[in-house]
Nucleic acid binder design. Structure first.
Lengths: 342, 342
DNA sequence: TTGAAAGCGCTAACAT
DNA sequence: ATGTTAGCGCTTTCAA
């Protein structure tokens, strides 16, 4: 690569000492320097194409202006918007985003990846990985690492989190199904080890109860993973047991895809015979026949807010004002898969 | 964060000088040091939990062990696997991945993002953005920045690239359609400003010709963007003009989704009346009715190969052995959308 | 085989 | 308002 201009060269070109050039270039300390000098330094810097060496600066200031993000499996379409939102917010504050993807099934890999990011001297971490009981969350808090959870959270997490409001989201779904005249409503829950799976399950119980919909334990089936196949099996089991069910609330879109298949395998029609709803409003699933009714979560904003929260944690010199977790409000995209009770 | 152990502390603990500790810790120079001393230093380092400060090291060595990656729009599901593949390969070689997403429609934003990555002293760059004529590609080459193009390439690119073999992929599709008895085959091409759009278009012409399928210019329609709506409009226009067409090769899956709609709007059945094929084999689209026939590109491998190529460029002390571009072989996923000619 | 010393480029006390 | 100085933690000559 081209040889880089150093601060000293800029200073020489401007006829001032290095430290004066440093002060002139730094917004914080600029006002201490003679205005005319500042102009001269800035001009020289621009002319020479000076860009500060972040390593030298970081070595001195002990900040890298880098944030690490751990993604469980980056191929999940969920994370694109989260990354994009975080990257944009970080970039506008001068931070860069270090990405590491870890295999969630392999706890050791998660730990290793986190260590890498810390060893890199990331100023803070954004975690998209956590299960409800995740030892690393507590450990990071203990080690006093600045970190934020996004999308999922841990039980009684010592780390702040930005998540979707699952209670609200499931409420929209259940309310909608009730409005459509359904009374026999089932639930394909996500894994109860994840906050989303657990939260949506609890929300389902809570809303059906408060809306006066009776839900027997037989109307609920847990999927072990967020996968199409798991949704297929769970729904098959559910329909076998409870053929009277006319609407199924799925804990996410992949499970809903499995439910589509199961319903069809039973010779029933999605939407007309059995209403199905998803969660996440994954792109392209509105192209299905029938298009999937799903809860839209503002994932891009989620990434952005997580970054913002972390930045505020990093820049609060005082330890005051403990950072506040956020619960983002979802909306319901009503489509053909959730027809009226016939 | 916790106070970090420095090399000096390790050296003191081991009762040697800092420079000896440095040599003992570095694989390259370890053999210069007394074996017993090495053991003592390593033990001390492990006991104290020493991790080298990458900023100090980078400042000294002028390498950050960081690679920057520019993504056009990270929300495109294409890039998840590419990122994952690259991150894995880089990680195993001690590199970290800096991600920046740029708005492709905004050339200035692309340039800004690239500068950020360079200013960060990334050792090299992976670009997933380039159009066929992209000034930044030439500029990077001129500036002698180590960089690799992935997924797309530029015309006569001075930078090596890892892309899918579009000629091969379209060949699989056309051959398949011919096998199914189709003789009136149309093409919804991608934007000709992108190498994928152009390459697949050329491949379509080439394969139809060599397989003896006559293709009038009226059988081809260009979509201005890779979007569902563009596919819808283009396909509508195509079918309006050429109602005799029984098979449509789409330049990517989103365009194919638009084609589904257009075909249905004409009161025709996808698969039975008009065969449709896509490109990319986007997850979940096999769940459509009918499931989409599409060309599968090994995107994860693509990311991995790109990283590997860049690493080899970075570590070749000699300027010899110019890096070799790669063209990865795709496969065809045949599904219900490409039925036989009836 | 090991130690001493310099310096990568920057910031921040301290001095003027 | 500006210059002097020290030092962040490391690698790497040069000496011993």
């Amino acid at each position: 690569m081209t040889d880089r201009i150093t601060l000293k060269e800029v200073a020489d070109a401007a006829g001032v000492h290095m430290s004066t050039a440093s002060r002139a270039l730094n917004e914080q300390t600029r006002d201490v320097v003679n205005a005319e000098t500042v102009a001269r330094v800035l001009k020289a810097a621009r002319r020479l194409g000076y860009t500060p060496n972040p390593l030298a600066r970081g070595l001195r200031t002990n900040r890298t202006m880098t944030v690490g993000m751990i993604i469980p499996d980056i191929e999940n379409p969920l994370f694109g918007p989260i990354i994009a939102g975080a990257a944009a917010r970080l970039g506008s504050d001068g931070y860069s985003l270090l990405i590491a993807d870890a295999d969630l099934k392999d706890q050791a890999s998660v730990a290793r990846v986190i260590e890498t990011l810390i060893d890199r001297r990331s100023d803070g971490l954004i975690l998209a990985t956590s299960a409800r009981s995740d030892p690393t969350v507590a450990e990071l808090a203990n080690r006093n690492v600045a970190a934020v959870l996004v999308n999922r959270t841990a039980d009684a997490s010592p780390l702040p989190s930005i998540v979707g409001d699952d209670h609200e989201g499931i409420g929209l779904v259940v309310q909608h199904l009730v409005d459509m005249g359904h009374t026999e409503i089932g639930h394909i829950s996500g894994p109860q080890t994840m906050s989303t799976g657990h939260g949506r399950y609890q929300a389902f119980l809570s809303w059906t109860q408060s809306l006066g919909v009776e839900v027997a334990p037989t109307a609920i089936e847990e999927a072990a993973w967020y996968r199409v196949e798991a949704g297929l099996h769970a729904t098959s089991a559910l329909l076998e047991r409870r053929p009277d069910i006319t609407a199924i609330v799925c804990a996410n879109d992949l499970l809903a895809m499995g439910a589509y298949r199961a319903v069809r395998q039973k010779g029933l029609r999605v939407g007309a015979d059995v209403a199905i709803t998803g969660y996440n409003d994954t792109p392209l699933l509105d192209l299905l026949e029938p298009p999937l009714t799903s809860v839209r979560v503002p994932y891009r904003q989620m990434g952005s807010e997580a970054a913002g929260l972390l930045i505020s944690m990093l820049s609060s010199d005082n330890g005051s004002g403990s950072p506040v977790s956020l619960r983002l409000t979802p909306t319901l995209s009503v489509r053909g898969s959730s027809g009226p009770h016939s």
